[in-house]
Write a protein that binds this DNA or RNA. Structure first.
Length: 788
DNA sequence: CGCACCACAATTTTT
DNA sequence: TTGTGGTGCG
């Protein structure tokens, strides 16, 4: 029974803590103050989710469980209560209840970038203490745990991590060595199957056992591949991305001691983007939080767009059944977008069935209507976007305030060309990632082999790169010998003359082994960055790039130099000067981090990559059936819901202006097609839309298919409009020559200083008063400027 | 062994 | 249309 004093004390304490978080809205405060037990925060787009996460951690560090506990501190008396009411230092001392050591808080995000930002904001807000919070990704958390525990699994604590392409090439070898046909046992399919098995916690032996039981020959073969794949990873002391989590989960489940250690270690576990977790990650979270049961997950079921890579929305939908005493808090006030944009987002997502149900609202005005533009084709679509941005820039907007979102990376091409012609600075996010580039993989492979000469997979990658006369046949032979003798590949190379089979290549092999051994020696003396220089020099890798002297190779050499910058900044930031440390880190790194917010550029990316970002003006291009929603999702209700969530994500990136753009016809993969406007456009209320250049009757009016009314494919459906007649680009009606004074819509006044014929058009250079010389294509420039 | 040519396929992406 | 991977020839 609580006494009157207790009541007053608790009330005063809550008020005291709450004072620190006054700037937050009521829901947000609630989420910050509910520290104990399982908590699900359903955070709509733009609802200040990260802010809540940060403040929640701040609350834990400063006040412990004071805001959410009925427990009084030892020796609580009227004097303490008075101090609480008074505030100040003594009040703080009276309020805090078990403040948490920072390293007892585990905050998990999905990307390194998000983890980095979280860390940065924590340090900024809380000083050094904030930096000691474990803010990391699922994978890096597992690596940290496994570095300590790997030996229990028979792995060296210095295990290496194989990334997607390592794993792909390993799988190719396995398929080949098991004499399977690569067509019917395609490596990507096998890897997918293994990944799913790992997610379901079925290990290789178990998989094979079940396959044999079923008698399904194909499944037995796959089981054998799985076993062999795992055997080779283990032999190489390597784990793939799934293994990092699967092994950690297994250890926590099966090893009492390990489990007890880590469950004691973490008092509070927070998981961001919970809608993107898979089953294994769910298990990991609940195991780690299993000590105290203090698990807080933040997510938005409407923003779940990664089902294709194993995320299961179930984790969020069934949180309340998994955790019986769970509290649920909805954050629905949006601080990002105007009313029209939110109306559109709400109306679109409302068409989905499998959701918790949320409605975003804002105190902001309705703002500008959403603009719908129908272009003739993809060129005109790109030109419309470019002209609109030029006009905005002319009115004083920044380039960086504009983002263009598309469904597939392939769509960026036309936009890119159009931007080049118009002289608009742009940046493309995504596409081939830095660490996926061949030259970067090569150089990293060298570093891996220098650090761990037993790494056969990477050794095979570089053994004849640059070409040094050790052909594929010889490598294969050496690999067979290694397998037979139970040696690693490098050992065979070192002793190449002991194997007469290698006759012809043996000298080259010994030379190469000596080269690598020499570099391994240097690695003991040199810092990683200096080692990189030595490696590039001694292996002739840089020379190879320089000699070719093509545009691509110059870019490659540039990338290699960029890698050195990366190594230096790793050494500086982590304080770690070891090669091994860098390599371990780099395996988990991607280059989304390279998104430089300072550069003033228009940003182009897929809708997927845009998640978590916001821009004053957003263009969503390719708003057509078969493009968005993509052809593969049409007729598949589940897939369609995912596309719709993607649409919701895309719309809610916009703060003030949103443009939806589509083309009456478009060339995709070399074929011209005419598509109806996206059904998602139809789901937006007319009152939010301002239509431009939209022909009468142009629209998607047929939802029967999606609703499951069509069991048979419909008879050839007529396009909703006739294809536009091909128009020739208008030649500029005004003629220009060097020396002309012009006024450009975006760049202002300038003088034409150079004209060069190029592909039926002219590349012109204009010296603008405001920004100096700029290169443009005449035809497009002519549309945006006048002669003075 | 290295290079050139042809067939083929082709969302979305992080770790 | 573009890029990649496999095959065949010099």
């Amino acid at each position: 029974m609580t006494t009157d004093f207790e009541q007053r004390f608790l009330e005063a304490r809550r008020a005291f803590v709450r004072r620190d978080f006054e700037k937050l809205n009521d829901r947000q405060q609630e989420a910050v103050l509910a520290t104990e037990g399982p908590l699900l925060i359903l955070a709509g787009a733009g609802s200040g989710k990260t802010t809540v996460l940060i403040h929640r951690i701040a609350n834990l560090l400063k006040y412990g469980r004071a805001s959410d506990s009925d427990e009084l501190p030892e020796g609580a008396d009227e004097a303490m209560l008075a101090a609480l009411k008074e505030g100040g230092e003594r009040g703080l001392a009276a309020a805090r209840l078990d403040p948490v050591e920072p390293w007892r808080i585990l905050a998990i995000t999905f990307t390194n970038k998000a983890a980095g930002e979280l860390k940065e904001r924590l340090t900024r807000m809380l000083g050094e203490e904030g930096g000691d919070v474990w803010a990391c990704t699922f994978h890096s958390a597992c690596v940290r745990i496994l570095r300590r525990e790997a030996e229990r699994l028979g792995f060296p604590s210095s295990f290496t991590i194989y990334d997607t392409s390592d794993v792909k090439s390993l799988m190719k070898h396995v398929v080949k060595d098991l004499n399977l046909d690569e067509k019917s046992f395609a490596p990507p399919m096998l890897l997918g199957e293994i990944s799913r098995a790992k997610d379901a916690q079925i290990d290789a032996q178990e998989y094979l056992r079940r396959a044999r039981e079923s008698g399904d020959v194909r499944r037995i073969r796959i089981g054998e591949v799985y076993v062999e794949y795992m055997r080779r990873l283990f032999a190489a002391g390597a784990m793939d991305f799934d293994d990092l989590i699967a092994y950690t989960v297994r250890l926590l489940q099966q090893d009492e001691e390990v489990r007890r250690y880590w469950q004691r270690r973490f008092r509070y576990v927070l998981i961001d983007e919970y809608q993107d977790t898979n089953h294994l990650q769910y298990l990991l979270s609940s195991l780690l939080a299993g000590g105290t049961g203090n698990i807080c997950v933040v997510g938005d079921d409407d923003q779940s767009i990664y089902k294709f890579r194993g995320a299961t929305i179930e984790n969020i939908l069934s949180f309340e059944t998994e955790y019986k005493n769970a509290r649920v808090i909805r954050l629905e006030q949006n601080y990002r977008s105007t009313g029209h944009i939110l109306d559109a987002a709400n109306s679109v997502i409302r068409n989905n069935l499998g959701r918790k149900g949320k409605e975003l609202w804002t105190k902001k005005d309705r703002g500008d209507p959403i603009r719908l533009y129908v272009a003739d084709n993809e060129h005109e679509e790109a030109q419309y976007v470019a002209s609109t941005i030029l006009a905005a820039y002319g009115r004083g907007a920044n380039w960086r305030d504009h983002a263009i979102l598309y469904r597939m990376n392939a769509q960026s091409n036309q936009l890119e060309m159009s931007f080049k012609r118009n002289g608009i600075p742009y940046r493309i996010i995504g596409g081939t990632r830095f660490f996926d580039r061949a030259e970067i993989k090569d150089v990293l492979a060298y570093l891996c082999v220098i650090a761990a000469p037993t790494d056969d997979l990477r050794l095979a990658r570089i053994i004849n790169n640059p070409p040094r006369g050790i052909g594929a046949r010889s490598v294969e032979l050496a690999q067979e010998l290694a397998q037979r003798e139970g040696l690693c590949l490098m050992e065979v190379l070192r002793r190449a003359d002991a194997f007469p089979e290698l006759s012809r290549a043996s000298l080259k092999m010994r030379q190469f082994a000596a080269l690598m051994d020499g570099l391994s020696e240097s690695a003991k003396e040199l810092q990683p960055d200096a080692l990189l220089d030595e490696l590039l020099e001694k292996t002739g890798y840089l020379r190879m790039l320089e000699e070719k002297n093509t545009v691509e190779d110059t870019a490659r050499a540039e990338n290699v130099r960029e890698l050195k910058t990366g190594i230096l900044s790793y050494m500086k930031e982590s304080g770690d000067q070891t090669l091994e440390g860098y390599l371990a880190d780099v395996a988990l790194y991607s280059d989304i981090d390279n998104y430089d917010r300072d550069a003033d550029c228009v940003v182009m990316m897929t809708m997927h990559s845009a998640k978590g970002l916001e821009f004053p003006t957003v263009f969503i291009v390719g708003m057509e059936e078969t493009v968005f929603p993509g052809i593969r999702s049409i007729g598949e209700p589940e897939e369609m819901e995912e596309e719709r969530r993607l649409c919701y994500v895309a719309i809610t990136r916009a703060m003030r202006e949103l443009y939806l753009v589509c083309a009456r016809q478009r060339m995709i993969f070399g074929r011209t097609t005419a598509n109806r406007v996206s059904r998602f456009v139809d789901e937006i209320p007319e009152t939010c839309l301002e239509k431009k250049n939209v022909p009468k009757g142009f629209g998607y009016h047929d939802r029967r298919e999606e609703l499951g009314f069509l069991s048979r494919p419909p008879a050839a459906k007529p396009p909703a409009y006739a294809p536009a007649p091909p128009k020739k680009k208008p030649a500029p009606s005004v003629t220009y020559e060097v020396g002309d004074q012009v006024r450009h819509k975006a760049f202002g006044k300038g003088r034409l200083v150079k004209m060069m014929p190029m592909g039926g058009d002219f590349l012109i250079e204009i010296d603008f008063e405001a920004i100096g010389v700029k290169k443009l294509m005449l035809r497009v420039a002519a549309m945006n400027m006048e002669k003075l």
